[in-house]
Structures are given as structure tokens and as C-alpha cells.
């Protein structure tokens, strides 16, 4: 059962580079008495699922719906897990292989809640954050949409809820 405590949240739609050092420091500063911090860096892969080289990944966002969707996911994580602080940043725009596309950090008193919350946040960001991705390469350009594995990853959180 999650205690009813205030969780520090910083959720952002980022149109430029994500400053992960600043975000980690801000989280540590906001939650100085945490016992654990889990961070996740998501980077643009250099090749497609089919093994072709990727020149760029382009993320489109909605001018009004995207930022609130990121905030909602962060708040859902805060409501679900016994954590003390959440930092989420998601890029939009044209990214190159190796660029950071998403950053998640979760601080908590004990490690398991931070690990689980970060895992939950990433599953939700993959399927519920309001973004559209397309990859460019020698093959031209094509849209990337959620896979059945992505949807399954998201659903497992709801299956767990239903089972409790």
C-alpha cells in the first residue's frame, strides 16, 4: 500500500538536449534523504529492427497534448509507488544515433520501489506519451508504431492491479 506522501515531480517535454546531470542534481537536492536513486537513459539506436543503419530519428509532438501526457504519466507513477521524487524528460525533434531520447530518474527510500517505478514510467512513456516517431535512413523514411511487445509491457501493470 502506498503511503499518502507528497512526491517531488519534474516532468518535461524537451525540444533541446536533455541535461541529465542537472536533472540528477535537482532530484538529489529535492529529496536529500532518499536511500536509492534509479536512473534510465534511453538513446537512439544506430540501426532499425530490420538491421538497417539509421541516419536520424524524428519525433513529432502535439503542441497541447504532449507535455500534459508526460506529466500525467509521472503523476501516475507517483501515485502508484512508494517513491519520493520523479524526474522525467522526453525529447522531441530530430535526433541522431546516440542522442538521448528519454531520461527517467526515481528516488525512493528503498531501491525496489525506485526500480519498479522507473520500469513503469518507461512502459507508459512508450505507449501513452503523445509522440510519433519516424526513422530515416538509406531506405527512406518510415513511421514507427508501438509493437505488440510494447503493448504487452504496458498491460502487465494493469494485470497486476486487476489481480490484487
Amino acid at each position: 500500500m502506498k503511503p499518502n506522501t507528497t512526491v517531488w515531480i519534474d516532468a518535461e517535454l524537451s525540444l533541446g538536449l536533455i541535461d541529465r546531470v542537472r536533472r540528477v542534481n535537482a532530484l538529489r537536492h529535492a529529496v536529500p534523504d532518499c536511500g536509492a536513486m534509479v536512473t534510465f537513459d534511453g538513446m537512439v539506436r544506430p540501426s532499425s529492427k530490420e538491421g538497417e543503419s539509421i541516419e536520424a530519428l524524428i519525433l513529432d509532438h502535439h503542441p497541447e497534448m504532449t507535455a500534459p501526457s508526460i506529466e500525467r504519466i509521472a503523476h501516475d507513477g507517483a501515485a502508484r509507488f512508494d517513491v519520493q521524487g520523479i524526474s522525467v524528460a522526453h525529447r522531441s525533434g530530430r535526433l541522431l544515433p546516440g542522442d538521448m531520447i528519454v531520461f527517467v530518474a526515481v528516488a525512493s527510500a528503498h531501491r525496489r520501489a525506485a526500480f519498479e517505478c522507473a520500469d513503469y514510467l518507461m512502459d507508459r512513456l512508450k505507449t501513452d506519451a503523445v509522440f510519433w516517431k519516424r526513422e530515416q535512413g538509406g531506405f527512406g523514411e518510415r513511421w514507427i508504431e508501438p509493437t505488440s511487445a510494447d503493448k504487452k509491457d504496458r498491460e502487465r501493470w494493469y494485470e497486476e492491479t486487476a489481480g490484487h
Partner: peptide, 10 residues
Amino acid sequence: VDFLSPLSGG
């Protein structure tokens, strides 16, 4: 009115 394709963040 907006029409939205399936989302794909992360």
C-alpha cells in the same frame, strides 16, 4: 479536431 495515429514515445 485532431486525428492521432498510434502513439510511440520512449
